[in-house]
Design a protein around this nucleic acid. Structure first.
Lengths: 204, 204, 204, 204
DNA sequence: TATGAATGAGAGTTCATTCAT
DNA sequence: GATGAATGAACTCTCATTCAT
């Protein structure tokens, strides 16, 4: 009897977590097919096979759900980048490329990152999330740059590097009048120039 | 009699132009206090002391009004930057600084530029506007970089420089946890590092 | 306990169906007091004691709501006519009279039918509804005419008969300058002439 | 001097009448390309090269302008039908065909006629116009039927005939699912059946 | 825990009409 | 007589969110 209850509870708990996960997945999925601001709570609920009301049991409001989805997606990016950190040769170029490649192909992450970067009425807890992710990414670039720059300059250089990559994406990713392929090549080229410039300024 | 008629006509025309200007001003004003996508036509009309319907006499739709406002504000920026082009000493640093300074202080322009950069369903004429402004800005940076780099590398370098400045702004301007003053100093510092890196890579 | 749950569920469902019905009723009601194209969703919501948004939970859009209302009302008419089909004596006259009588007294159905007949941008599913009703009505008239005409001519004759009745209504129902009573007598008379003409042309 | 004034006045008067005519023409023109209820005063003014305000100098409101346009167009129809009245052979068939042919090809007149027939809040003077036109049309059909029916039955028969033709048009002209050509053939056929039925009922 | 019916404010946009010029 | 700038109410429809069940 007791076991049954525990199991029931456990099943419930599982279902609960599954629902939560489904909601997040549905959100992430929708972000890749629609402009960020057009993803509605109703649509998420529908795709997650869940009632709209349930979303508010797991997330305070839309912002918090979006931020959670962002955190999860950016964790994937971080993992992908961390795998690269082992590489020794031309680490800087490889990481930079991996970063923009990931962002270019994962429109949902790109959309979310830019969305949160542009928001300026950060309500405490939500914004802290962005900060964490930014810091984590920054740490990776710092590591990759450590061969090229002295410790003293490392922090600023890493921040600059990170910012420049973002700038390249944001400035040119949606600039009209080019095919997707041409846009990608342009971005790739600019990243190469960025890496080359840094290497030139700070040879190993 | 004739004078009176002219004056009468003039008065009407003045009122008309005033209304048009008020609409644009109201829009620009609102862009600095609210996320771009949350500025409503009704709010603009109200702030401009004008009926909602009147806006559509001057602008085809919301997008066109927004683009017009963006053009006007960016023209101001371009003029400010062009004045700086005369300066000979340390032109690159001065222009870079002026650009981010302007963007930092004019939140409306910053909001608008990033908004249009992130939009990806550009409908023809509207998107052409963004392209023009981007090109104009790019030309200024190209000019400022021409002393440092050979002709061959100039184009990419200017694009990269422009992108990096945007990236610095976007990545750090709204990053929470810092005072406005501290944020500004951080951005300023990164721009200095950017300029220094370029100079180091490509001495005059 | 179980009963209570069922009842609870039932209450909710009842309220829901009541709202849905209220919306349709409000729409139907408004159609009899206003030109069809002037009935607004707001007015319907207000008369149904429901928020405007709720209407869109039950109906895709205005067209679908209108079509639903039309179907319901025309079903009532069809049922009324089908009851008459049992009658043997002078079936044609009785059915014709019943049809125009119903239409004359139910201004809402009259408004709706003419509205959909005059619409010319029928978007798929909506237009199919009109077609169905038209066909059903046509079948009834065909049946009533089957005594008078040979099989070969039946189809066209039924279509013509149906069209003529509509024409009488549309041409004279709102023709100004007559009292409602006089108008009705005029229409009734014309229908008698129509039936008489057919009988004269095609005696049993 | 006086002559000049007269001429000036005359010219003015001419211009005035021209404007009035242009407004009506623009309206009539627009009715053939758009659903009746979607023709706006602004659009009419624009097409007539006239300011929106001027329309209200010539016409009390939209309804009156529309009615005026309707009268003019229906006069054209009446003239076309009157030319046919001379014909001796098979006059009834010829006139019926001419009527539906004209209506079928002149969508603007068809739209207007049905519009005014369905209106039920006739404000005096406007509705009188419809009455006149209806009566004129009726007279023509009466004339065409005079060979077939005795004087006593003529009036009702003419009204019925007119109503039936309208009914055929309204019931089948926009019934979806048929090509325009097929629709026309169907209508033509029903009119033939109508004429045949009358001839059969009342041989010459 | 989970539902989903319901809210009601708010979005962009259009319109006939007016009136100062 | 003629203009056209301006109104402001009205339109359909969407949305995040709530709460009785």
């Amino acid at each position: 009897m007791e076991e049954k209850e525990i199991q029931t509870f456990s099943k419930r708990e599982q279902k609960k977590q599954l629902n939560r996960q489904n909601i997040i997945n549905a959100a992430i999925q929708l972000f890749s097919s629609k402009p960020f601001s057009e993803v509605s709570m109703r649509a998420i609920a529908k795709d997650a096979n869940v009632s709209p009301g349930l979303i508010y049991q797991y997330f305070d409001d839309q912002q918090h759900l979006f931020m959670t989805a962002f955190k999860i997606e950016s964790t994937n990016l971080l993992n992908a980048l961390r795998q690269t950190i082992e590489i020794q040769d031309d680490q800087l170029a490889v990481i930079a490329r991996k970063y923009i490649d990931y962002m270019f192909r994962h429109d949902n992450l790109y959309q979310m990152m830019t969305y949160f970067m542009l928001e300026n009425d950060h309500h405490g807890s939500v914004s802290a999330g962005l900060r964490n992710i930014t810091d984590d990414l920054f740490a990776i670039f710092r590591e990759a740059l450590s061969k090229h720059l002295p410790e003293k300059q490392l922090k600023s250089a890493a921040q600059l590097f990170f910012a420049s990559l973002n700038g390249i994406l944001i400035t040119y990713k949606n600039l009209p009048g080019r095919s997707q392929e041409a846009t990608w090549q342009h971005i790739e080229h600019l990243v190469e120039v960025l890496v080359a410039t840094i290497k030139r300024a700070y040879p190993e």
